[in-house]
Amino acid sequence: MCAVARIVLGITGGIAAYKACEVVRLLVRGGHDVLPLPTRGAERFVSAETFFALARRERPADPYPHLQRADLLLIAPLTAHTAARLAHGLADDVLTEAALAHRGPLLVAPAMNSAMWEHPATRANFETLRARSVEIIGPSAGELAEGEVGWGRMAEPAAIVERALALLGEQAPSTLAGRRVVVTAGGTREPLDAVRYVGNRSSGRMGVALADGARRRGAAVTLLAANLGVPAPAGVEVVQTPTAADLEREAMARRDADVIVMAAAVADYRPAAAGDGKRAKSAEPWHVELVPTVDVARALGSARDPSQVLVAFGAEQGPDGLVRKRAMLDDKNVDLVVYNDVGRFDIGFDSDDNEVTLVSRDGERLVPKAPKPAVAEAVLDEVERLLAQRRR
């Protein structure tokens, strides 16, 4: 990538448009050529003249500057309305025309009311954009324009510019770049006979989001997939591990990875004996003896290297569950425990969202309810922090 990049900056109509001024300033200070494309809605908050002045350029006389080649298209803020237009391929203003004509990386920074962000239509639109390899930064949780506190706040300008520079190849690589990362995902199924099993409701969405996030940060990712209910991400090695024994074997074979994230719901018990065929139905009770499976997290912790980062997920219920998860740090010799409350029906199993508490020896941090890819980014940020500690 050349030292000077041509960046088209779309600004859509929302109160966060004022933050785009700082985005322009930081990009120009970095020596880049910035073409602002404010929508009419954005100009209700900040005039186009302000953006062009900060970009140190005149308003173009050419009526089609937005259709010229650009190294990056950045939209900050991105409203729910414009996100819907991008997802459905509409081109009814210069910004959406630019998006359809653009052939390079596209980075968007959503900003909206939390109820709008959480609406299923908005979620579906952003999933469509993500499937088209659109990079999404934020939103974050915080105080919103209307005085409420929740998800929907635009990412800070410095963070947006940092991600933009990374896409342009100018940023130092992620701590995960070049690292070997193993992620477990899904729920194991322990056979009772040839067709029946003891299992759980895990779809694997959380683990898949973690694997995809680590891949995008430059890691070489292996996904140990236990009966996924969602597609595995592209660009990762997928190893099928349908039972707890399969997952244990494949995880221990990769126990020297730099990072191991144990997001799968591994059965704590399995039938002592499984029938070869299908047991015929009868009026008689079926008594099944269950025996413990190997604790994979404990086994990996016992065999760990000091330079590794081990992450365990813990599904429990309520405050008492969090207390038990704190004890996992020492009991299983892991660096980070991700606690999610399975007593709630709006997060976790069978949900696109999650809310977790990150428990490490440095303290605890709540990641409020958000789509699982956003929660995955928070977990990976903590993994990178722990890796940086290892290097020091």
Rank of each mutant, 00 (worst) to 15 (best):
C2E: 14
G10D: 05
G14E: 09
A17F: 11
A20H: 03
V23G: 08
G31Y: 06
D33F: 09
R40N: 13
A48Y: 07
A53T: 15
A55T: 03
R56Q: 15
R57W: 02
P63G: 05
L73F: 13
H81T: 15
T82G: 07
A84I: 07
A87M: 05
L95Y: 03
A99C: 05
L100Q: 11
P105I: 01
L106E: 03
L107K: 00
A111M: 13
S114M: 12
A115G: 09
P120S: 10
R123P: 03
A124G: 09
N125W: 05
F126V: 13
V134K: 02
V134P: 06
I136F: 09
S140T: 15
A145W: 02
A145N: 08
W151K: 13
M154F: 07
A155I: 11
E162Y: 08
E162D: 15
S174V: 12
R179C: 13
R180W: 00
V182C: 01
G186D: 04
V195E: 01
R196N: 02
N200G: 13
S203W: 05
V208M: 01
A211I: 03
A211E: 00
R217N: 09
R217I: 10
G218E: 11
T222F: 05
L223W: 00
A225N: 02
G235D: 05
V236N: 11
E237G: 05
T241F: 04
R249Q: 15
A251D: 10
M252L: 15
A253I: 14
A257Q: 00
V259T: 03
A263W: 04
D268H: 03
A272H: 12
A272W: 07
A273G: 01
R279Q: 11
R279F: 03
L300P: 06
A303L: 12
Q317V: 15
G321P: 06
R326A: 13
V337W: 00
V338E: 00
Y339E: 08
G348T: 10
F349I: 12
S351Y: 04
G363E: 05
L366C: 10
P368H: 04
K372M: 11
A376N: 02
E377C: 11
A378S: 14
L380G: 03
D381M: 08
E384S: 03
E384M: 06
L387Q: 01
